[in-house]
């Protein structure tokens, strides 16, 4: 599964597609997500990892265990405001209200700190929709899409395959240059 995903992502990146949606099997979501970040890092990208699901320390240690150099990533932690995590290095913590404007500012500022080929990685768009109205989720996705179209940057939206048929996810998928689905 990981090999198939890595090959598909590599092909899409080589064809210079900017906005990518990855529909990952829920049961292997973490494994598939880590594999896709590894592809990006191995291809020389540096990125902004926006985590709505896991606190920064958790996702950072998982990626490290999977052989990813996390120094090449800036984490935006929108999960731990719920539980006050101890603050660490290359991580930007979003305040408790998880406002889209604050997320937008954090993404924009973090991108500015990176050099060379860049990516923004959203993990995951369905989780933010649990906390914010769909209009705000769509506003965030529109900002991200327009940012990567203006800059030399790639945007990856992650979503569990079983959630990919939700209407707002389909609406976001319409703006993507490529949708990668991986067999379970």
């Amino acid at each position: 599964m990981a090999t198939e995903l890595m090959a598909a992502l590599e092909n899409v990146l080589k064809s210079n597609k900017k906005v990518i949606m990855m529909e990952l099997p829920a049961d292997r979501y973490l494994e598939a997500g880590s594999a896709s970040v590894k592809v990006l890092i191995d291809l020389g990208y540096r990125g902004v990892y926006v985590s709505f699901q896991r606190p920064c320390s958790n996702i950072s240690s998982i990626l490290s265990r999977n052989g990813i150099d996390t120094k090449k990533l800036v984490f935006i932690d929108a999960a731990s405001p719920l539980a006050e995590e101890k603050k660490t290095g290359n991580c930007v913590y979003i305040s408790e209200r998880v406002e889209v404007d604050e997320l937008v500012r954090a993404v924009y500022t973090s991108l500015g700190k990176l050099e060379g080929k860049k990516f923004i990685y959203i993990d995951s768009i369905s989780t933010i929709a649990l906390y914010k109205p769909l209009s705000e989720t769509m506003r965030l996705s529109e900002f991200l899409v327009s940012t990567v179209r203006k800059e030399n940057c790639t945007l990856v939206f992650n979503v569990a395959k079983d959630l990919a048929q939700k209407k707002f996810v389909r609406d976001i998928a319409l703006k993507a240059d490529a949708v990668i689905g991986v067999a379970e």
Binding site: Q53, R54, P55, S57, N58, A79, S80, L82, A83, E84, E85, K86, T127, L130, Y131
Partner: peptide, 18 residues
């Protein structure tokens, strides 16, 4: 469902951080 999933997310995040 949506409210419970949000609760579950908050619970597991709290557990992870601690």
């Amino acid at each position: 469902t949506e409210i419970f999933v949000r609760f579950a997310h908050s619970l597991v995040t709290k557990a992870r951080i601690n």
